[in-house]
């Protein structure tokens, strides 16, 4: 555990010491605000729904850019060998990298708190759904990061890691949308939908925190972190 913390600190300062981090934060906030307020003032309903509907799709491009490097870079530069020959458990390394990515993205998410604040100035905003939705956003980000880190562990090429992560996330998103799950026979459709990241996100967004959604996200995070440990264990090629 102590070592996960050390890895987390190193990774996080690696993120924050680079100018790209600040471009990332700015771009994330600007793109989200623009897309949201462009419609917000046209519709004229005091609600953050549109904002939270957009988040999963915005994450689709932003989060892979955070995770693509995590293992791919280590593999490419050979530093994996330094890392794995230290007295440290593989799971501590995986956890450290996951936490670093999560904290980094959490900073970006926290910056968007300004948006509900601005909205609440324009009218009477119901804060309940906003708070639960943010909980959903953090959980979704964590799941995305676990997925992205796993994908990154399979390759030494960051671009490959980025693209494959986008594809995996995209698939896990769209199986929760009606046009996609409805093509399955109704018996399976419900199961398919339940596996999707978007279905559970929408469920939380409604303002009710259901333990099933929480359990779902934690299972996804655990599952992908578990496979991440397995994937870096099998480095004998």
């Amino acid at each position: 555990m102590r070592q996960s913390w050390v890895v987390m600190k190193k990774e996080l300062s690696g993120y924050l010491n680079s100018a790209v981090a600040y471009i990332f934060f700015t771009l994330f906030l600007v793109v989200l605000s623009f897309l949201f307020f462009r419609v917000y003032f046209l519709v004229g309903v005091v609600s953050m729904n549109e904002f939270f509907n957009m988040i999963p799709w915005i994450f689709l491009l932003f989060i892979p850019s955070v995770t693509m490097k995590s293992w791919a870079e280590e593999r490419k530069s050979g530093t994996m060998e330094v890392l794995f020959t230290m007295p440290v458990r593989d799971r501590d390394l995986v956890l450290g990298k996951f936490l670093a990515g999560f904290f980094f993205v959490s900073i970006a998410i926290a910056l968007t708190f300004i948006i509900p604040f601005l909205v609440s100035i324009t009218g009477n905003l119901d804060m309940g759904p906003v708070v639960t939705s943010y909980l959903g956003v953090f959980l979704l980000a964590a799941a995305y990061i676990a997925i992205g880190n796993l994908v990154s562990s399979f390759t030494a090429n960051q671009v490959t890691a980025f693209l494959v992560t986008v594809v995996v996330m995209f698939v896990l998103m769209i199986i929760g949308t009606e046009p996609v799950y409805s093509i399955f026979p109704s018996a399976i459709a419900d199961i398919v939908r339940n596996f999707s990241l978007s279905y559970h996100f929408q469920s939380i967004q409604r303002g009710v925190v259901d333990s099933r959604d929480i359990v779902y996200y934690f299972s996804i995070i655990f599952l992908f972190l578990f496979y991440n440990v397995r994937s870096i264990e099998s480095r004998n090629w």
Partner: peptide, 16 residues
């Protein structure tokens, strides 16, 4: 691993 110090081939380092 505790009793070993290792300089791998090509000396990989965190260059940043």
């Amino acid at each position: 691993r505790k009793s070993i110090g290792y300089l791998p081939e090509n000396n990989p380092l965190y260059t940043d």
